[in-house]
């Protein structure tokens, strides 16, 4: 870790100014990923602009019934918030499926979105990685890549995004609010916030230099919609997803057809993977097991598994089909969550 300057910002504008004034700086939230990467030498900021004490730690109900989650709300507080638990249990579940109690106490909403891949080659300075060092190559492609992407990867990068929370946000049609300086903000759909690697794997997200995540906005939940987050991992806790799925399902109680479905996968791609093809097939359809399987297969037909990770396709298919079955009551096991 090289020495760095430290600035504690007390306002958004102050943070943006400090960022501009210090080339090569990084915003510091909870730091659970950034400090980790600094120790590894992956991140070498000249200055840290500490935004963790900005007044962005509020969860506020919006007039339209949605929720505004400040960027510095800690993951544990977000998961425990009564309105999140009652209206967006999917989000609580996703958060609680990630990391550990002590990490969730520190990690922020904004930081969770901006966390970087856990690809071992990205973390190891002695191996090539286009994300860490553009143009150096991809160590994972020729190396061991059991945990890597099956969807949307490129010849330059096969990393996955590690967040559980972001998968839930993608399924919930959340938006990410960004402060761009001089009082300007913009909003980006959570599902569009993270990028596919293409030929610029160094850019994880669509965030522009100096922009600060200020909030996540959750739309009001559809009455009667049910949701679920399921994650498969190598140990029972404290492990990243091999694959995960977030589903929000709104069924017409009259004819049992799908009014709306949101299906997002984690652990399969460089970003939370919103399964648009599957959603389109299921919308207006009766979600019987056969239809669901066909829809999920249509989505996964786009996958290009690598030597070590083809298992992710049946795993994702199982997860999605089972989750939807559980939500429609077709599941032989437990009833659908409210």
């Amino acid at each position: 870790m090289r020495p760095f300057a430290y600035v504690r910002a007390t306002s958004l504008q102050e943070a943006a100014d400090a960022y501009a004034a210090h080339p090569g700086s990084r915003y510091l939230g909870g730091g659970t990923n950034l400090v980790d990467l600094m120790k590894l030498g992956v991140e070498t900021p000249g200055a840290l602009i500490d935004v963790s004490r900005l007044p962005l730690a509020e969860i506020r109900e919006l007039p339209d019934g949605g929720l505004r989650v400040g960027a510095t709300v800690r993951n544990s507080d977000l998961a425990a918030h009564p309105l999140v638990r009652s209206r967006y249990p999917l989000l609580s579940r996703a958060l609680l499926a990630g990391a550990s109690g002590q990490l969730r106490n520190v990690a922020t909403t904004g930081g969770n979105l901006l966390q970087r891949t856990r690809c071992g080659y990205f973390q190891d300075l002695s191996t090539p990685c286009n994300k860490r060092e553009p143009g150096s190559g991809c160590g994972a492609r020729d190396g061991l890549h059991r945990d890597h992407a099956v969807l949307g990867h490129s010849e330059h990068c096969i990393a996955t995004h590690p967040s559980d929370m972001a998968v839930a946000l993608a399924a919930l049609d959340a938006e990410v609010e960004l402060y761009g300086g001089a009082g300007t903000t913009r909003r980006v759909a959570a599902a569009e916030f993270h990028r596919l690697p293409g030929d610029r794997p160094e850019d994880d997200t669509v965030i522009r230099p100096g922009e600060i995540v200020t909030a996540v906005l959750l739309p009001a939940p559809a009455p009667g919609a049910v949701s679920l987050y399921r994650k498969a991992r190598e140990r029972a806790s404290y492990a990243f997803a091999l694959a995960s799925v977030a589903v929000v399902l709104d069924l017409d109680p009259g004819d049992g057809r799908v009014r709306r479905i949101a299906l997002a996968f984690g652990g399969l791609a460089h970003r939370p993977w919103r399964a648009a093809a599957a959603e389109a097939r299921l919308t207006g359809a009766v979600p019987d097991p056969g239809a669901v399987r066909d829809a999920v297969d249509a989505e996964l037909a786009r996958a290009r598994p690598l030597r070590d990770n083809a298992y992710k396709l049946p795993l994702a298919r199982h997860l999605a089909c089972d989750a939807i079955a559980e939500l429609t009551g077709a599941h032989p096991g437990s009833p659908a969550t409210p």
């Binding site: 856990r118 071992g120 191996t127 404290y238 990243f240």
Partner: peptide, 23 residues
Amino acid sequence: LDPASGDFVERDLAAYHVPTNAD
């Protein structure tokens, strides 16, 4: 062991899965 780099891939306690309490 990664045949290409010759290194152990699971070198830290995030990648090498020692059982947790929940296991």
